[in-house]
């Protein structure tokens, strides 16, 4: 069976660090930064398990600020 590979791109400056994407991801791909903050001072969401993402879009769907763009490609 072909495996789906995904990638998320977070609009860091739009992110308010609410963390809803982190819990929405079934594979724990995302986490909030612990040291870095954006211009507004929020810890923002970032991809921590890059290879695990399947591009299911759960994180992006629950994101209240529309910060997350998701790409998905079938692994050949």
């Amino acid at each position: 069976m072909a495996k789906m590979r995904g990638a998320t791109v977070v609009d860091v400056e739009r992110c308010k660090g609410c963390g809803l994407c982190v819990v929405a991801c079934p594979l724990k791909v995302l986490a909030l930064t612990t040291k870095n903050v954006n211009m507004k001072g929020y810890n923002y969401a970032e991809t921590v398990l890059e290879d695990t993402c399947t591009g299911c879009t759960s994180c992006a769907i629950v994101c209240p600020d529309g910060c997350i763009t998701v790409y998905r490609k079938k692994e050949e």
Binding site: V9, R14, K16, G17, L20, G55, A60, P64, D65, Y71
Partner: peptide, 30 residues
């Protein structure tokens, strides 16, 4: 993976780029 043809989700076009004043995690945004 991050190529236009692989795009599966993005912020809806009608929702513009103005940062929303809602608190982090507010249901309004969804």
């Amino acid at each position: 993976i991050i190529q236009a043809e692989n795009l599966v989700y993005r912020k809806p076009e009608l929702l513009n780029d103005v940062p929303m004043h809602y608190c982090p995690g507010c249901s309004h945004g969804v």
